[in-house]
Every structure is written in structure tokens, then in C-alpha cells.
Amino acid sequence: MDSNTVSVGEFEFQCGETIDDLELAYETYGDFTGDNAVLVCHALTGSAHVASRGRFEEGDQAYAWWDDIVGPGKAIDTTEYFVVCVNVPGSCYGSSGPSSTNPETGEPYGPDFPPVTVADWTEAQRRVLDELGVPALYAVVGGSVGGMNVLEWAKRHPDHVEKIVPIAAAGRLDPQCLALDGIARRAITTDENWQGGHYYDGPEPDQGLALARQIGHVMYFSKSSMERRFGRRAATREAERAFPTDPAGRFFPYRDVESYLDYNASKFVERFDANSYLYLTRAMDNYDLASGFEGDADALAAFDGAALVMSFTGDWHFTSDQSEALADALRATDTPVAHHVVDSDYGHDAFLVEPDNVGPPLADFLEVGLDGSAISDTEESDEEPSDFAPVHNSLFSS
């Protein structure tokens, strides 16, 4: 594994703003042989540290986020493929973002950092690949908003990609997810410590960021997985409330699910920047595959490779119906495609925590294409799309 930061020089963002020196953190795994490069696109709060499990120094992402998928002998086999993962602009894991130092002022950019989009991520990744001497990619793979990043590669650089694998992703977010992300951002911007984004020399908006993360975390579970994992149990006596409660609240139990969310939120604020959370969620919310085109199929029409779309039945963040619509758009352009639906009630994070479900079809697709024995396609099934719709397609369903 090689971990580096590279300056790609002046960079113009989609919004029209420019910074003179865009720095991008990236990691590579394996050896480049000319036609074996696989770009892995990380999810919302991920980093370039995709594999080789281990701890970094405090303040970095604690664990490699896809170590069960990327590595020697794994689904993305680093003895066969040259794997690249780039931390996207706007993040806080080594690439330029709001917490980076603005060379013109010597202070953190804060809210003066340019707004970022998924298109900016894609162009930044293209610049890193240029620095590495990688003209084209064998495959681009990513989950969640990383899957949107994959789609943007097929849209913007169709001649540079042979295979795409968007996992638990869609061409755009639905209104329910947009609403919840909006509430999460308000949790940050209404924290008195946010100070309009200029908080780096004082207390940080930890409470707002913690609440934002908790909202996001609930979006990643299905109803049944939360019932199975937490139920209505009270937390252990050792658990301490992370947030103040009203006097009457002391009469009622502090529940296990609350304790879990509080614990994970407290860990998250130690490693992530609140402004970056604002920037990256807006990039995800703004993404629309069809932007600039008549529709999704038109946006993907120039891509002449093959695609494996993967979804999970319990995922209501990016539903199987949305993935099927994406597969239909690819079919409309005569792109060889399979939509592999995983029967899982875990929720959106299944693509991270269920490697036994993700690995085999992914490995088959990379090795032999759509004829892999582990790959199934909904188009070949007699079931209608509604038959594989998510079990819990709404946070508020009963």
C-alpha cells in the first residue's frame, strides 16, 4: 500500500471558483500493468484508506473501510488489479477542504472553500490518475454517494472506463432523503459554536455534528435491523447520556438505541469536520445523473462498457427500485448490464458490512463479466420490480 498526497495545481470547480493548489490524498494497492487499474470511490465520510486494516494516528479514520473486499485474494484482488482510492475535495482526510489552510490567508478556508460537486470529485480523481500515469480504468467501483461518483465517470469519461459497479446508489436522492439531510445540516448550522463556519480557533460545533451524524446513521439501518439489534431495551446502567434531557425525561429509560447513536456520534466528531459534512452532503443531495441531458439513458449513452448494478432489499436510502431504474437506463442504451439484488434486511450499510454478499458477484464481474456464476439479474427474473422493493422503504412506515 502506498499513501500519498499530490498537488494537481490550479483547479476550477464546477461552481466557477478556482483555487491555486488543490491537494488530494490517495492510496494505491498492487502494481500497475497498463490495463488493470480499478478506481474505488469512497462513500460520504470515507477516506482513501480503503484496505489494509489497521489504526492511524488519532484524528484519522480509524479503520480501512472496505478491507474485506479489497486486498490479496479478495473480491478486488490487489495481486491482479492496481487499486486507487482518492479522498475527494471537500473532505477532511488529507485532500483540500474547508479545514485546509488557505495559502492566501494562512487560516483554514472554512466556508470560503468553493462548493464541491460529484463532478468535481470525478475531475479531481482524473487529475490524480494523470499524475500516476493511468490513462484509462479497467473498472470504477463505489457504494452510496461513491456509486454516484461511479456514474459520473461513465457520464463524463465514457472512453476511459471499461466496467462500472455502482453499489447501493442511484441517479439522484429522493425527497425523503433530501429532507433528512437538510435537517442534519440545520443541526450543525444552528449549533452556537458553528459561528458561520469560522470555528477553527475556538470550540467546534460538536453537538450539531453529532446530531447530524445520528440522523444519517438512522438512515443507514432498516427497521427490522434496528428491531433485531436494539429493540426497546434500556441501556446498561454504565451508559451515560451524551445529551442533556428534560427533568421529566429522567423518569423514563435511556434506551439502548439512544446509547448506541450517542456513542458512535461521539466517536465521529473526533475524526470528522463539521464544515466538510455540510459540503459533502450538499454534493450528494445536488447530484442528478440526468443534469445537462434529456434523461439518465441519454447521460449514459456514450458509455460502451459493461455495468453491474447492486442493491439491497432492506435499503431505503437508495432503494432497489431506484437501482432498477438505473439498470433500465443502461439497458436502453444497449449497455450490457445486470442488476444484482441482495436479499438483506440490514439497510444501506449492507454494502460495507456484508462482504459475503458483495464480494462474489463483484469478483465474478471483474474477472469474467456478466456471465459470472455469482451474478443474478432482475431482468432475467419473472418478478416485477415491486417484488424486490425494499422491505422498509420508508423511515416512517408502520
Rank of each mutant, 00 (worst) to 15 (best):
D2M: 10
S7Q: 06
V8H: 01
F11I: 12
C15Q: 08
G16K: 05
E17K: 05
E23M: 06
F32Y: 15
N36V: 08
A43G: 06
L44N: 03
G46C: 01
G46M: 09
H49F: 06
V50D: 02
A51C: 08
F56A: 13
G59A: 10
G59F: 03
D67G: 10
I69A: 01
I76N: 04
T79V: 03
V83I: 03
V88G: 00
S96E: 12
S99A: 15
P103Y: 14
G106K: 06
Y109C: 11
P111I: 11
P111F: 13
P111C: 08
A119I: 06
T122K: 00
E123K: 07
L132W: 00
A136D: 15
L137R: 10
V140Q: 03
G146P: 01
N149H: 15
L151S: 07
A154C: 10
A154F: 06
K155M: 07
P158W: 04
D159L: 03
E162K: 13
I164T: 08
A168V: 12
A170P: 08
L173N: 07
P175A: 05
R186E: 14
T190R: 12
N193M: 10
N193L: 09
W194R: 02
Q195E: 13
G197C: 01
H198N: 05
H198S: 04
Y199D: 01
E204S: 02
G208H: 01
L211C: 11
Q214H: 00
I215K: 03
V218T: 05
M219I: 07
F221P: 00
M226L: 15
E227Y: 07
R233S: 15
R233G: 09
A239K: 12
A239I: 01
E240A: 15
E240I: 15
A242N: 01
P247A: 12
G249N: 13
Y254F: 11
R271C: 05
F272N: 10
L278Q: 08
L280N: 08
A283C: 11
M284W: 14
L289A: 09
A290W: 13
F293N: 04
A297I: 12
A299G: 01
A299S: 08
L300Q: 11
F303V: 12
A306Q: 15
A306I: 06
L308W: 00
M310I: 15
G314K: 05
D315Y: 07
W316A: 06
D321P: 00
Q322C: 05
Q322G: 09
S323C: 15
S323D: 10
A327E: 02
A332E: 09
D334L: 02
D345V: 11
E354Y: 01
D356H: 02
N357L: 10
N357M: 07
N357K: 13
V358F: 00
G359T: 02
P361T: 06
L362N: 05
D364M: 03
L366E: 03
V368S: 10
V368G: 03
G372R: 06
D377S: 14
T378I: 05
T378W: 12
A389Y: 09
V391H: 14
N393A: 14
F396H: 11
S397E: 15
